[in-house]
Amino acid sequence: MTTINFLIYLLTMIGIYGFLSLSLNFQVGFTGLINFGQVAFFAIGAYTSSLLVCKAGAPVILGFLGGMLLSGLFGYLISIPTKSLKSDYWAIATLAGGEVIRLIALNEGWLTEGAFGVMRIPQPFRALFSMDTYPLFYLILVLVCLAIAYIILSLLSNSPFGRDLKAIRDEEELSLSLGKNTRKLKIEAMIVAGMVAGLGGALFAHYITYISPENFRPIETFLMWAMIIVGGRGNHLGAIVGAVTIQLFNVSTRFIGAYLPFTPGFMAALRMVIIGMLIVAFLVFRPDGLVKERKKIYRFKNDDGEVD
């Protein structure tokens, strides 16, 4: 029974990271925007929802919606400067932006409880289930939400909107010259991505029931990056596969470690070395990731500019 509990927990966390990698993948794979502050969406979604519920007494569903909305708004805000910034600069700016969000959560204690974090975040429909069945319910909730997000993003990326987005990623100049309003498209993509990641944050907060600024350090963003690179940029299935792979890898090292003659400190470092090397190896040897993006019309160049 307990083994199953652990699997349920593992799958729930994979599902939650699935939102974050789906969202990041949508930004990177579909618009070419390099967001190193992805954790900010996660934080905003988690904090907004928990504060609305814990401090303003809103029902959980409102918290979820609020988290999504505010996170989408943040997506809107950070997408404004993409007009004038080169993608490298924007990437660094988002890294900084993510840290600023964490510092606000840390320093504005009147609102966010500061370093102490928000405790006792209520869980939706908790009273309807027993202690043993509730995790299963939450897993289903997460997976259903994830499936909805997946379907919406898939529909979006196959729509004219999605094709335009990919056009921006591959040839921004060209789409501009074709009269596409690339700026508006990027902003819309960031809002959608923000909302998806924000929902992930809200689901996370109400699952773990405690959040603090410690949850939202830049390392989370780097893990999300590892997910989409391993999984494969530019397609939604890849994002999910990446989330599964990296989460399983992270957890599996805990088991393998028992059979290796290394100290736990060494093992922990080794794990991060492997994560770093995975990022490098995939980009060098298999830039498409585990799941390759299917390209119907773009026969001439893939996203690394190689000739197919």
């Binding site: 070419g32 390099i34 190193f36 993608s87 490298d88 990437a91 780097f222 990056w225 590892a226 690179i229 400190g265 060494f266 470092a269 080794l270 991060m272 070395v273 994560i275 770093g276 090397m277 995975l278 990022i279 490098v280 980009l283 060098v284 830039p287 996203d303 690394d304 500019g305 190689e306």
Partner: peptide, 25 residues
């Protein structure tokens, strides 16, 4: 290969994570 510069940037992030932890090892 003429790979995009952003790919090189993300790769350097991977190198950074790996190097930092090799130092720890």
């Amino acid at each position: 290969k003429g790979t995009k510069s952003v790919t090189a940037m993300i790769t350097s992030l991977g190198i950074a994570i790996a190097l930092r932890n090799i130092v720890r090892m």
